[in-house]
């Protein structure tokens, strides 16, 4: 029996090895690197203690980017959820050309983020882009989309919402399609209107899917960097710099490998803690039973 158990456990080895190779080893390596002074001219795994972490504590640019991410990720995911839910409700019901609309709504998600950011950069171009042109035709002043701190954040959020709302739509539509019909029939028999049915039946039933969709998107949004890179390069000043982009600058562009490791790990821990708390709060707010 023991032999059989050992034999069976051998089948776990490929999976375990893969796990070690692609997750655990890089993680352990990053931890080790974060305690080294590895940089562009000293590519060595020496030991500098917690120097990188002390430096990080005083790195106001990093902490500002973390706070900014809270606004960017929280804001964009909330908007994506509202729009995604609305559009999913629209095509959930009988609608002419339903299949066409469903595919159309998914197109932004299927495009490459960097390419789309480049296209949006042209759209927001302050002298040649169509947005300012349109504002001009309406008699409005041009907006400094990519060179003003506020507008640049708005431009970045617009791109994120445009690109990822379809993902939210997809998850929520799948959730809606899997809902049982009986509660809706009961609501109809009781004479509940559209709004009341949504508030009392649809929304509560969709709570587990909503929480999952929001968390998945928050995880993805926390890695925001490619659209920042193309659209604003973190500017003007550092007003659109996200932690992901900042890590790219420190770790890859400047090749501060040791310091980049410390930033990465801290960022990872912060994200895990924050997202766990957010998930718990969301589950409580949506009154989801069990694990969302």
């Amino acid at each position: 029996m023991d032999g059989l158990r050992r034999h069976k456990s051998m089948f776990l080895l490929p999976g375990l090895l893969t796990l070690v190779l692609i997750i655990i080893f890089p993680l352990l390596f990053t931890i080790r690197v974060s305690f080294s002074g590895w940089n562009v001219s000293n590519p060595q795994m020496d030991f500098v203690g917690g120097a990188n972490y002390v430096k990080m504590l005083h790195d106001s640019r990093f902490w500002a980017s973390i706070l900014r991410l809270g606004l960017l990720a929280g804001g964009t995911v909330l908007i994506q959820y509202v729009i995604g839910f609305g559009v999913a409700l629209l095509v959930w019901r009988d609608l002419r050309g339903r299949r066409f609309w469903r595919v159309l709504f998914l197109i932004p998600m299927m495009t490459t983020p960097v390419v789309m950011a480049a296209i949006w950069q042209t759209i927001f171009h302050e002298s040649l882009g169509p947005v300012n042109d349109l504002l001009g035709r309406l008699g409005l002043s041009p907006v400094h989309w990519l060179t003003g701190s506020g507008p640049a954040l708005a431009a970045l959020m617009t791109v994120e919402v445009w690109q990822w709302t379809p993902f939210m739509f997809l998850l929520l539509l799948a959730g809606l399609l899997s809902l049982p019909k009986e509660p809706f029939m009961a609501a109809a028999i009781d004479g509940a209107g559209v709004w009341r049915t949504f508030r009392k039946v649809t929304f509560p039933l969709m709570a587990p899917v909503s929480v999952s969709a929001i968390i998945i998107r928050l995880i993805e949004a926390s890695k925001l960097s490619d659209s920042v890179y193309v659209l604003t390069s973190g500017g003007p000043g550092s007003s659109t710099e996200s932690p992901g982009y900042y890590l790219y600058i420190r770790g890859l562009k400047e090749q501060q490998t040791g310091y980049g490791g410390a930033l990465s790990l801290t960022y990872l821990v912060l994200m895990i803690v924050t997202l766990t708390v957010v998930a718990a709060l969301l589950a409580k707010a949506f009154k989801v039973k069990g694990n969302a």
Partner: peptide, 8 residues
């Protein structure tokens, strides 16, 4: 003296 968008 920069054109619109000239700061980027």
């Amino acid at each position: 003296a920069w054109p619109p968008g000239g700061a980027n």
